[in-house]
């Protein structure tokens, strides 16, 4: 009780009027105030259970922790960010959904046990924040992060793979993986930061659908799940990535269900006669 009173006093003196202060953090992170000021300034902030973060109950690999952020229960989300308070680099990504749902799955590097949060900005100018505390004391059989992985990373750089599924609600579910070392610049060997910083998702006729800005905490070989509304008649989803060295990575993920029923036959014909 006394501690709370002291804390409130501290808040009042630090921020003057109470309404300017971010709300008290249900996860009680020592870094919350700083996070709120740096990443969420300029808008009202409220904690909201409609913004969900999913993580595993145990961490197998601190370099590849699966994180799912889901704000689909909120209307009119214009931007969603994901961050981890106690990471050396906290901000993992920003999704500007456009024609995508405010939903993303990806893998994240985690340095220690930390809150992981998603903040969704709605069109009325309010950040809705949800989060979960990730206990990163690894399981006994977990191997630690191996940093850059195999030495041959440059041979596979930019190789992308992916697939689209049609969802009942009209969204197309994209699963997408691109090979990239995603170096943080924090490794002891002085490898500079080297990561894909921007991914644009477009219909195959060029209509912009969603924008994803990624930062150093996104794991090596980014592996993403997004829900995108593909324009009627489009037969593929185009993905264009750019890393912080300026390299461009172009991919096109086919949407096979939009092909006419004749298309498979046509494809077969184009492949020429079957070998006997």
């Amino acid at each position: 009780m006394m501690r709370t009173a002291f804390f409130l006093l501290f808040l009042a003196t630090s921020f003057g009027i109470a309404s300017a202060a971010p709300p008290q953090d249900p996860l009680q992170s020592p870094n919350w105030q700083d996070m709120a000021e740096r990443l969420l300034s300029g808008h009202a902030i409220e904690f909201d259970e409609r913004v969900k973060i999913s993580v595993p109950s145990t961490v197998e690999n601190q370099a590849q922790v699966p994180v799912t952020a889901d704000a689909r229960a909120l209307p009119n989300v214009v931007k969603m960010i994901v961050f981890a308070d106690l990471n050396p680099i906290q901000h993992a990504l920003t999704l500007t959904p456009g024609q995508a749902a405010p939903f993303i799955s990806f893998r994240m590097k985690i340095e220690q046990a930390t809150p992981i949060r998603a903040a969704a900005l709605t069109s009325d100018g309010v950040w809705h924040v949800g989060g979960i505390f990730l206990n990163a004391a690894g399981g006994g059989c977990s191997a630690p992060a191996v940093g850059r992985g195999e030495a041959s990373w440059s041979e596979t750089l930019g190789q992308a793979s992916g697939r689209l599924w049609r969802e009942a609600d009209g969204f197309s579910r994209l699963r997408f993986r691109i090979r990239h070392p995603m170096d943080t610049g924090l490794a002891k060997d002085n490898t500079p930061a080297y990561y894909i910083e921007r991914m644009e998702f477009k219909g195959n006729k060029g209509e912009p659908l969603a924008l994803l800005e990624m930062y150093e905490p996104v794991s090596q070989d980014p592996t993403l799940t997004l829900l995108v509304r593909l324009p009627a008649g489009d037969t593929a989803l185009d993905v264009q990535g750019r890393d912080n060295n300026g390299a461009i990575y172009r991919s096109s993920v086919p949407a096979p269900w939009r092909q006419s029923i004749l298309a498979p036959t046509k494809q077969l014909l184009e492949q020429g006669p079957a070998r006997c």
Partner: peptide
């Protein structure tokens, strides 16, 4: 069972993603 199932998802998924997702990058 739940704990080990979750761990197995984390062990198997990266292999499936590496093996089974079709290549989609375009030569530029």
């Amino acid at each position: 069972s739940r704990y080990e199932y979750e761990r197995s998802v984390m062990h198997l998924y990266p292999k499936l993603e590496a093996e089974k997702l079709p290549r989609v990058d375009q030569k530029s």
